[in-house]
Amino acid sequence: MAINLRELSKKTIPFTGGHRMCAGCGAPIIVRQVLAAAEQPIAAGVATGCLEVATTIYPYSAWGTPLIHNAFENVAATVSGIEMAYRALKARGAVDKDIKFVAFGGDGGTYDIGLQSLSGAMERGHDMVYICYDNGAYMNTGIQRSSATPLGAETSTSPVGKRIPGKPGHRKNLTNIMAAHDIPYVAQTTPAHWRDLMTKVKKALAVEGPAFLNILSSCPLGWRIPDDSSISILRLAVDTCFWPLFEVENGSYQMNYEPKEKKPLSDWLKPQGRFRHLFRPENKHILEELQAEVDRNWERLLRLSKYDSE
């Protein structure tokens, strides 16, 4: 499963340029890395969202793999249906190839409206990989808050007003929720860590049964960052421990990366316009709360990882 850049550079990735995703968006980078990592033919599903609307504008499609878009909240159920069809058709000899199944959804379609469908598909044990590209809000409809939006972030439905300074409440810890499903493989990564991401895709595709990857994805429009800063800001998310790179393999937690020097969360928050108001003196307590939450999660992950490795 080693990843060889020279070999990779020769590979035709079945996802063309010319689609209409924004410059600097993390989602198409993720798709390319996922499809580049796959050694088997893929049939994919995509939830309604930026990735779907910007890559499948009829009569064009950026996808060189079979792809289905059904609706917003049901990509997991839809792909589970494809996987069922595959088992049935393979058993009666109508399909002979070995095919793998991947579902893509944003945080809105995964953390919120699609959570039931995802939970059901994972519990049933379909041989599929679910990939959430988490950019922390409903970016496709114009940057509304989701349950993946960090505390205090400004979105169009959690605006910074005279009384309320951005999104109230912390984000949902979906990766842990998925780990609690006791499925064979769960992991967190970012496209700025391409080797980590591709290794995890390979692992996820290799397991028999369901796998879930939560991938932090930049949105220059929603995060209010320059187009060309996506990768550096995603790296900061990891170096500040906001988005730890870890995996849960058959229930066992493994930290994949520990920064030499854990940077303060403000390093990640500061370049993003959606957090600008948090640096006003009256919002200092929100910054502290955010840092405390990151520390809590980080320490917990370290404990789990240490415990499982002993």
Partner: peptide
């Protein structure tokens, strides 16, 4: 939703 996926897969 699963029926849609399955039928689109030819089942």
């Amino acid at each position: 939703s699963a029926a849609v996926g399955a039928a689109a897969a030819g089942a």
